[in-house]
Design a protein around this nucleic acid. Structure first.
Lengths: 143, 143
DNA sequence: AGTATATTGGACAAAATTGTCCATTAACTC
DNA sequence: GAGTTAATGGACAATTTTGTCCAATATACT
């Protein structure tokens, strides 16, 4: 169970895409500007999202990125997992090679609860659940 | 909301301490061996736990570490926060400078749910809740 | 006092994550 | 076809996290 900056970035940019309902693709430059994610780092993230099939990319003039599926079909878990393999890792927190209900480590019962909560959260919500409307306030770190 | 290796290590070693009910302090060497955490990295973590007042250390012959309080008074949140400041960071995932119920970012409602779930989990459980008994299986990465 | 033990602290090293730069490729416009 | 635009890919740099080494300090035992 790991949660890092990149996963948060991915959620952020996808949430932004979900709030834009124009049909034209959105350029990474605009994405970077409005989300505050470093441009070229964002590009890498976008690529991963494209490869994962969550986003479509279009090169050249008028190109950019669009969601590859309806919002309701893009779950948070898809987004996070496409950029962060360690997110839903099964490795036991305690270090057991085979930790499970039959062979529980001391942390198993409590950790399982956390894991389940996080995973079911990520499985439950989709881009449909992000609030619509224009951003009210710009990020701090955007100049 | 960040969850990293060090936080997991801290939980792991504290859980181990909680399962040992002898009165003698436990040496970091033993802790490292049984938890599979690299010895000197573990030392740093232990120091943080000592500074946070969760663990008592004893130098010299017969020294080692013991819990500084009853198990029931050591919450997971204390453990994690003493080694990982970013765990319960309030920074908005979306990047808003002031994100809140009145000025919500698109991710606010869903993210708030995750945050609350994780934090209430961490606030709820204590070392009392870790399973007692001897470890059944040694970690894989321990030689 | 002297010796062994174990934490502590500082410096350092390796690895992973995060961020940047630039050339290449693909697509569109005229 | 020439020029422009925007994603892609690769190399690289900075930063953070994770891991290691060793000397210093404190404690206990004889």
């Amino acid at each position: 169970m790991r949660l890092n900056q990149t996963a948060e970035y991915a959620l952020r940019v996808m949430a932004y895409l979900a709030t834009q309902d124009n049909q034209e693709p959105i350029k990474s430059k605009e994405l970077a500007k409005t989300t505050g994610i470093p441009l070229f780092y964002l590009s890498k993230i976008m690529r991963r999202l494209v490869v994962a099939g969550l986003v479509q990319s279009q090169k050249g003039h008028g190109g950019g990125f669009t969601l590859a599926k309806p919002r309701s079909e893009i779950h948070f878990i898809d987004i996070i997992q496409s950029v962060s393999s360690e997110f839903s890792t099964k490795r036991c927190v305690f270090g057991y090679a085979r930790c499970g209900d039959e062979n529980p480590c001391p942390l198993h019962p409590t950790w399982k609860i956390l894991r389940n909560q996080i995973l079911s959260w990520a499985n439950k919500f989709t881009l449909e659940d992000v609030a619509k409307g224009e951003p009210i306030e710009l990020p701090d770190d955007v100049v």
